[in-house]
Design a protein around this nucleic acid. Structure first.
Length: 496
RNA sequence: GCCGCUAUCGUCUAGUCUGGCCUAGGACACAGCGUUCUCAACGCUGGAACACCGGUUCGAAUCCGGUUAGCGGUACCA
């Protein structure tokens, strides 16, 4: 065990080379849960040593996604939110962008060179490539042949190409918190390149330096990094750095069982916000993808997740992303929310806020619509489709008004009776469900529910499927309802 | 090719460490039924899995070995 007093520090170290996707989000969540559970520190560090592929907009997208999910970080780089507002860097271990830490890497690179744990390689890319192919052809693991390993002085007329680590031919063993003991034969990967030059360090080296300098204690990252771990451990020991605890979480797979990657456009996290998913549902869903509490609970709040979370209970195999379960989970949460809370959640999203404004419906009415349609919503975005008929009656065929084989004449006559009641209630009597049910009782008793309620409901909604007529009237009011029924009667009589 | 990781219903998983309580539990999805003017919600019911072969044992989903399959890595990407 590590010292009890040592404060836990974890980090999310994404490379900003694409939109924030599910895999990164889940890794972020596991780090966040672990940090919060142990009152530790959650650090975000941008691994942007690949200048050609890294883009500031991807960085912002990532930070925006984290912030939307509510995975608050304690230390991290500056960033820009969607409204263009700049947020300052947080933490005392900065900068939190590898491209801004070159001075630090240079120092350790020199130390490694001086201690002969690293050496300058003069072999060109082409030479290495040719060598690689011939090794592959022989069925050998491709690795550097150590040509420049023992060079005493720079060879005549050749320029330095890269800096390599002098890999000892040993077996590297480590304990993974999720997988148990794992071991790799270092001889198989040979002298790997740790920097292109003093000012351009490569991933495996930069990570090691930063984790040390940032006092990271636990590395929780994707399983795709498992083969990098022995390289990093070797580097740590050459630099006399602390040892770290590792936890490699399984990958999130696409429906074809392959690693979820950027080519899945739909896996960009912010796209799910636009589809109307709630951050709490996303977090809950992501947590259950590869992890499960000891009991059978599936719907868990953030607090419950934090207290129940356990690295040891993380699954060892990859999990396929199931959008249907996400929808169910989102619906579960939505249905448990108050109408006001749902409206508030919609207003927080700039796109939804705009669409609500365009509906030109006052707040009290929006809340009423919400209370009626909530059960039918799986996502926030569903609201607009479901609510539209309240705002404007859609066009419909008069035949839709007919219940089963009811003739037009009969239906028109019933609607006329209903119209009288609605008009009366609009003028004098109460227009609530109880009053209306009582007033309609003799008619439904005489004609049967279907012959009365179906045409009424269609007249009010213009749709084959909708909430029941009393609920619709509750939103519309008796006057507007009467108007819609009048229109239905006209439709029926026009053709008859 | 080589190295590594993994393997329970279609999917997410419980159970595996500490073998018997497992004729393998839950959830999503699916089907049927109920409720019902419709849809949704809700309730009930159902089908659905221990990858394969061998070993250890009185007894294996669970331990061991092998096979197969999937995934990841094999970069002067991260």
């Amino acid at each position: 065990m590590r010292g009890a007093k040592e404060k836990i520090r974890v980090r999310l170290a994404p490379s900003p080379t694409g939109a924030f996707h599910f895999g990164t989000a889940r890794t972020a969540l596991f780090n966040w849960l672990f940090a919060r559970q142990h009152t530790g520190t959650f650090v975000v560090r941008m691994e942007d040593t690949d200048a050609a592929r890294s883009k500031p907009e991807y960085e912002d997208n990532l930070m925006q996604g984290l912030s939307w999910l509510g995975l608050s970080w304690d230390e991290g780089p500056d960033w820009k939110d969607e409204k263009g507002k700049r947020h300052r860097e947080k933490g005392k271990h900065g900068p939190y962008r590898q491209s801004e830490r070159k001075k630090k890497y240079r120092m350790y690179l020199r130390a490694l060179l001086e201690s002969h744990n690293a050496y300058v390689c003069y072999c060109t890319k082409e030479e290495i490539e040719a060598q690689r192919e011939s090794m592959l052809a022989e069925g050998l693991p491709p690795r550097y042949n150590g040509h420049c390993r023992a060079l005493e002085s720079p060879p005549e007329g050749r320029a330095p190409q890269a800096i390599r680590f002098r890999t000892p031919e040993i077996r590297v063993e480590f304990r993974d918190l999720i997988r148990g003991n794992v071991s790799f034969d270092a001889a198989l990967f040979g002298d790997f390149i740790i920097a292109k030059g003093e000012d351009s360090p490569l991933y495996n080296f930069a990570v090691v330096v930063d984790d040390e300098l940032m006092s990271i204690t636990h590395v929780i990252r994707g399983e795709d990094h498992l083969p990098n771990t022995p390289k990093q451990i070797l580097l740590q020991s050459a630099l006399k750095f602390r040892e770290l605890a590792y936890a490699h979480v399984p990958l999130i797979l696409g429906s074809d069982r392959s690693k979820l990657s950027k080519r899945y456009a739909e896996t960009s996290l912010l796209a799910y916000r636009e589809k109307g998913f709630l951050p709490d549902a996303m977090v809950n869903f992501l947590a259950l993808l590869g992890w499960h509490p000891k009991d059978n609970r599936e719907i868990l709040s953030r607090e419950e997740l934090v207290s129940a979370f356990d690295l040891k209970r993380i699954q060892k195999s990859g999990a396929i992303f199931d959008g249907e379960k996400l929808e169910w989970m989102n619906a579960e949460r939505l249905h448990a929310m108050s109408d006001a809370a749902i409206l508030e959640a919609m207003l927080e999203n700039p796109e939804f806020e705009k669409r609500i404004r365009e509906m030109r419906v006052e707040k009290a009415r929006l809340l009423k619509i919400l209370s009626v349609e909530k059960q039918r919503m799986k996502t926030l975005a569903d609201f607009f489709e479901l609510a539209s008929f309240f705002v404007e009656l859609p066009g419909y065929e008069s035949a839709l008004l007919l219940w089963q084989k009811d003739p037009r004449k009969k239906t028109a006559a019933i609607l006329k009776e209903l119209l009288v009641i609605l008009e009366m209630n609009a003028a004098t009597a109460p227009c609530d469900r109880a009053a209306l049910e009582k007033a309609l009782a003799p008619i439904t008793k005489r004609e049967g529910n279907g012959s009365v309620l179906w045409p009424l409901r269609v007249a009010l909604s213009g749709k084959a499927a909708s909430p029941d007529p009393y609920e619709i009237i509750g939103v519309l009011g008796c006057a507007e309802s009467a108007a819609r029924v009048r229109l239905a009667i006209e439709k029926l009589e026009k053709i008859a």
